[in-house]
Every structure is written in structure tokens, then in C-alpha cells.
């Protein structure tokens, strides 16, 4: 995002560990904001799905964190950052069906091991940075316009 882009927007949403009651609220807000900005509905949908999965990952797996939404004229960026515990094996975490969620969480229909793959499918660019003991940042980018166009 560039400083000269006067349409740039940045919003932060805190997400608490195991806060299942509030789960989905960040995604709902993101969807609402993007709609108000007049973003095309298929892009809004992809961003909402990616945000929901990011939010659920924070609720289920993290020690708490936040989701940051950044929008400018070129792209939508959804970034989820947490305070740990970190992902020891990212390749394994990306495998569809693999999950470290507890039985209790799985009974609610979460922990199917599809969250990160869903996020990747919804994004034009997708990145995970993780350090065990420190935390994880998952970045999803959805292009509104072709880069540089």
C-alpha cells in the first residue's frame, strides 16, 4: 500500500483464544467493509472465506492475535498474526485433512484440516511465516486489479 493512495484503508480486529462465541464476526465485518467499498462480490466472497478461516485458526490454535485488513485500489490483504505457539511443520499444516485440533473442537465441525488450504484457494498470493515459540503470520492477498495496471 502506498502513502499516495488516498483510498487506502487499514483495520485491525483482535481475536481471542477459544472465543468461539465471537467467531465469524471479523469475517462478517470484513465482508461488510468490502461491500461498502464497492468491491466485486466474488472478491468479497473470497476475502470473507479467507478471513473466516484466518479467524478460526486464531480462535482454535493460537494464544490470541489479530486480523488486519488492508485495502487499496490494487488489492485486498488479509493478514492474521498471533502470539504463538507457532507451526513446527508448515508443509504438514498445509496438507488437506491434517489438523492438530482437539476432539472437542472437531465435534463442533472445526479442525477438518481444510482451513489453510481454503485460504490458499481463495488467494492470489498466500504466505505463512511461523516461528515456534514466537508466533505465526498468515498473509492472503486478493488482487482487485492486475498488479501494475
Amino acid at each position: 500500500m502506498t502513502a499516495r493512495d488516498e483510498h487506502a484503508l487499514e483495520m485491525d480486529f483482535a481475536v481471542g483464544r477459544h472465543d468461539f462465541a465471537a467467531a465469524g464476526e471479523v469475517a462478517s465485518r470484513v465482508k461488510q467493509v468490502l461491500r461498502q467499498l464497492g468491491i466485486a462480490s466474488d472478491l468479497v466472497r473470497r476475502a470473507a472465506v479467507a478471513t473466516y478461516e484466518a479467524e478460526m485458526n486464531l480462535v482454535i490454535h493460537s494464544n490470541g492475535g489479530k486480523v488486519v485488513l488492508r485495502v487499496d485500489s490494487e488489492r485486498i490483504v488479509v493478514e492474521a498474526c498471533d502470539l504463538g505457539p507457532g507451526i513446527p511443520d508448515i508443509e504438514l499444516a498445509m496438507r488437506e485433512g491434517y489438523s492438530t485440533a482437539s476432539d472437542e473442537v472437531r465435534e463442533m465441525g472445526f479442525g477438518a484440516g481444510m482451513g489453510l488450504p481454503n485460504m490458499r484457494r481463495c488467494s492470489d498470493s498466500f504466505k505463512i511465516d511461523s516461528s515456534v515459540g514466537r508466533g505465526t503470520t498468515v498473509t492472503t492477498v486478493i488482487y482487485i486489479a492486475e498488479p501494475g495496471s
Partner: peptide
Amino acid sequence: SDLLSDVMG
């Protein structure tokens, strides 16, 4: 489906 991420996807 009973898997929320399956539905999401």
C-alpha cells in the same frame, strides 16, 4: 456437511 471448512470451501 458437518465440517464447517468443507462448507466454507
